[in-house]
């Protein structure tokens, strides 16, 4: 039997439905403890509750704000520091060891520190997202600029282009390409930072809801929130994938 790859999604969906049905049946039969693995219908109704009474929106908003804030700030600062370090050796000397250290540790361990410094509000979440993203972008830009194609630089120079032409026609597009190539990873980092920050200490956000569900042993709510986070990140992934595809249409 040959499988038509175009119909893969049908088979995937059917299998998923089957697994969910078995899971549901196992719940009713009493083979699964609903405390640990609530049946899909319970997760569904938890989801429904979250949206129907509108309780979810402030949490979604908080997580989004923190993640996007950290993402944008992280990209701007990461690019700025990366460019400065690539252009000015003195700055590279100072920044490189710090960034290497920050890169070596799992940066989420900084979450409690940010809470002490910035409080339980959104600032500490933005800060965690920011630190995750900016270190990634810094290295992308810093190494990228040092590896820029010499032939392109010589080409522009021999065509009579000066420093500004080099920046505009070679360095900027190169930097944009590297950043875009890492955009998906950066988005993932940004949401990780926001959720972990909220998980550690917060009064709002998906991460906060998760820790609330945990403290009340509400597995159905927990599954529902994990599902929401997955959907949110997938949507953002596909948006940034499209942006990347459009801006990098020359590849």
């Amino acid at each position: 039997m040959t499988l038509d790859p175009r119909h893969a999604w049908i088979r995937q969906l059917a299998t998923l439905a089957l697994v969910l049905a078995l899971w549901e049946a196992a719940g009713y039969a009493g083979w699964l403890n609903p405390l640990f693995a609530p049946p899909p219908s319970r997760i569904g109704s938890a989801l429904h509750d979250l949206f129907s009474d509108g309780r979810i929106w402030p949490h979604l908003e908080a997580t989004f704000t923190a993640a996007l804030g950290g993402l944008i700030l992280g990209i701007i600062v990461g690019i700025a520091l990366g460019v400065l370090a690539a252009l000015i050796p003195f700055i590279a000397e100072l920044l490189e060891p710090v960034m290497t250290l920050l890169n070596a540790i799992p940066r989420v361990v900084l979450a409690p520190l940010f809470v002490i410094w910035l409080g339980v509000g959104i600032s500490s979440k933005i800060a965690l997202s920011f630190i995750l993203v900016s270190v990634l972008i810094f290295f992308t830009v810093f190494t990228g600029i040092r590896q820029v194609d010499r032939r392109l630089v010589e080409r522009i120079t021999t065509l009579g282009g000066g420093r500004w032409a080099l920046i505009r026609h070679v360095y900027l597009p190169s930097v944009a390409a590297w950043v875009l190539g890492n955009l998906k990873v950066a988005v993932g980092f940004a949401f990780t930072g926001a959720c972990v920050g909220e998980f550690v200490a917060a009064t709002r956000g998906l991460g906060y809801l998760l820790s609330f569900a945990q403290s009340t042993y509400n597995a159905a709510l927990m599954f529902a929130i994990i599902l929401i986070i997955m959907v949110v990140v997938l949507v953002i992934f596909s948006l940034s994938g499209r942006l990347e595809k459009y801006l990098m249409r020359w590849t």
């Binding site: 194609d149 032939r151 392109l152 010589e154 021999t158 009579g160 026609h169 070679v170 597009p173 020359w250």
Partner: peptide
């Protein structure tokens, strides 16, 4: 300078243009 043209083995055209 502007009257001199240069052609190398691998002509680095800007890939994004």
């Amino acid at each position: 300078r502007s009257e001199i043209g240069i052609l190398f083995q691998d002509d680095a055209l800007l890939p994004w243009k």
